[in-house]
Design a protein around this nucleic acid. Sequence first.
DNA 1: ACGGGCTGATTGACCGGTAAATCAAGTAGC
DNA 2: GCTACTTGATTTACCGGTCAATCAGCCCGT
Lengths: 335, 335
Amino acid sequence: MVTMQDVAERAGVTKQTVSNVIRGRGAVSPATAARVRAVVEELGYTPNLVARSLATGATRTVGLFVPTVAGSFYASIVEEVEDVLDENGYHLLLCTTRLDGGRAKRHLAGLTSRSVDALLIAGDRDLIDHLPLLAEASFPVALCAWETDAPDRFPMVTIDYERAGYLAGRHLRELGHERVTVLASPDHAPRVAGFRRAFAADGLTVPDTAVHLAPAPTPAGGFAAATAALAADPGTTALFATHDVLALGALEAARAAGRSVPHDLSIVGHDDNPEVGASRPALTSVAIPKREMAREAIELLLRAVTRSGAPANSIQLLRPELVVRDSTGPVGARD
Amino acid sequence: MVTMQDVAERAGVTKQTVSNVIRGRGAVSPATAARVRAVVEELGYTPNLVARSLATGATRTVGLFVPTVAGSFYASIVEEVEDVLDENGYHLLLCTTRLDGGRAKRHLAGLTSRSVDALLIAGDRDLIDHLPLLAEASFPVALCAWETDAPDRFPMVTIDYERAGYLAGRHLRELGHERVTVLASPDHAPRVAGFRRAFAADGLTVPDTAVHLAPAPTPAGGFAAATAALAADPGTTALFATHDVLALGALEAARAAGRSVPHDLSIVGHDDNPEVGASRPALTSVAIPKREMAREAIELLLRAVTRSGAPANSIQLLRPELVVRDSTGPVGARD
DNA sequence: ACGGGCTGATTGACCGGTAAATCAAGTAGC
DNA sequence: GCTACTTGATTTACCGGTCAATCAGCCCGT
């Protein structure tokens, strides 16, 4: 490993001068600078980032926690975060918590010790219990894609999930649906609340019996829940799934139950994952600006890093948008 | 930030003694050890990993390059790698190259400077031109999921893709298919070669005209290629797609062309991605042991790190397995 | 009473950079 | 011709740990 000292000796200057040349700081005469650069080239010197980090206290690395990386939602977030980091010359330290609180805690401990400049926590579930550990972190922390109530100690960039549910509900209302079913994951209460609000606006109620919890956030889980729901209330004309993968399963369930979509049953999904764009019929879904969200969050963090102050403790909500495709139609379209 | 020196002073010992206690090395009397530990607890001391890295030359961080993280194949690899790293107390530095050679190169430069202990490169495409940069890397490097000819400077853990193609072909042969079509991505030559070998074993030839390149590795790309292929040779009785997403598109294309699967057309995919398990009919596919592959590769690297010698420059091939589902059947089953 | 082998702790150097203060010339002002 | 200011480079200290060598007691044998 060739060091700065090696370069300095070969170029007949001091370590410090080499440092100045490399970082373009301080006053160095053009002649010396050229000579140093030549030696750098000749020896193939690259600065040791670990040493630099120790001296400066900055690692140019940002930590990202996500529940998983399977599934396009978090995959998009990871990629977007990485794009922004790359634009700014930062590296990405990734930890997928995978429903494993212990692992999350272990990683937290590791990162706390100065090895990241900032930390973004996307998604909830596994980490919420350990957040207090970060209260005294020496680097900025932000949350994103948070749906459940978050500890208000950290700035947050997330989606207006309540509005997402509302958009789904309003769409179905505009199509005239009155008797509807909801397929929800346990963590999606805000979406359900928003959905209900859309109906409440017209004086309609979505009863608790119409809300079915999916056993798992998978197509199979959606299939099971939808099958049960359709059996429980055959008169339902529309279905809102709080997760696209559930909607996929619901499409299958509708087919299995002999109901044509959208003629006999309208289905609205949530997230607008690209993989469901290929479903037949194409799924109407509430699109959430995940990439924008990730970008906003990470830029917020980087701003906090460079300005070296704690970020404003705020909540930024991004607005979802409804994407209408072929899985929804007016109620009673069959006739 | 509380340092080791702070702990030492408070406990009335030296920095070095604290270090010994923390790492359980050297000879420390139980009494002193207890006292030091108490102070550590009291002050909430955590060792500075950057400083430790500088002193020891090990960062306990491993770099992983993948082309993308969207799509379950690489997502699985990332998660498996992370699992193994976590088991061994390592962190993961992720870089998705995203068809961007420049980005890959930038990251390579960053990692080269002592900031990772090892590097795993999964998948090819973007990085192959820059591999020589790693020739003089001071840490072990390994490749995995490599299909095209790789530079034989690094150890490699990958899949026997030729055999994967062979399994697909043999399956179709056993079902009696003679006139077949292949949908391939440009990089999948070995799979196609293996597929051909299965037919050659029975004295049959798969002509070049039967091999269609997909415009993009997406369902839409598969749809387009399959539609063209079926139009070009309506007499084909089976189709092998070198990528599951292509097979998904092919299923659609078959449906659009009014051909029932598997009665009029058998379809075999490749990768056995979980998301296609939900397709109708369920897709027969060649399953590749991606998690095992990732695990083998990263364990190979970690062994090289601890034994601190260059890893054996070998190629390890994992065997794929055919998973038969509902999209394939005997030729002429309609009758 | 004295040298030799343990144990437990200390000392000083070092990892490879950066930051701030200092120093040696060369130029400018008067 | 003397001080005062620039410019370009050096010196010294420091970031927070680890490593190797050293040292102070203590127990032991003779």
